[in-house]
């Protein structure tokens, strides 16, 4: 899928979040994934307010997330979601080095959204 700036292709937020969650969960587990993405949301929510609507919570012994449908209707989201991806990558690099960053960038969607690829 090719993502073009300024062109929203729903459901982008849900798709991006799903890719990040699943890629990370497979490698580092749900608890670290939940914490990392929550931290990235808190950092990015001022510039991308729609992120604040995402729910990440503990469900019994596991973690779950929920991206409300309206999150994908925000016209500015497409531009801003790239910043969120970069925040996730920067946090990962700071916390774990470049191994997981490279792994995430091997996903075409993440690679296209990330500034690091440019």
């Amino acid at each position: 899928m090719e993502i073009k700036a300024g062109h929203t292709e729903p459901p982008l937020v849900r798709l991006v979040f799903s890719v990040l969650w699943n890629e990370l969960k497979e490698t580092i587990g749900s608890a670290p994934t939940a914490t990392l993405l929550r931290r990235a949301i808190i950092i990015s929510q001022d510039t991308c307010p729609v992120l604040a609507r995402i729910i990440i919570e503990k469900n019994g012994r596991e973690y779950r997330y929920e991206v409300p449908a309206e999150a994908d209707l925000d016209p500015q989201t497409c531009d801003q979601i790239g910043d969120f991806v970069d925040t996730v990558l920067a946090l990962l690099a700071r916390l774990t080095g470049n191994v997981l960053v490279r792994q995430l960038l091997s996903n075409p969607l993440i690679r296209q959204l990330s500034e690091k690829e440019q």
Binding site: G29, A31, P32, L36, R39, K58
Partner: peptide, 9 residues
């Protein structure tokens, strides 16, 4: 969970 929360922050 505590270790994860704190180290990832």
């Amino acid at each position: 969970d505590l270790a994860v929360q704190l180290s990832l922050w």
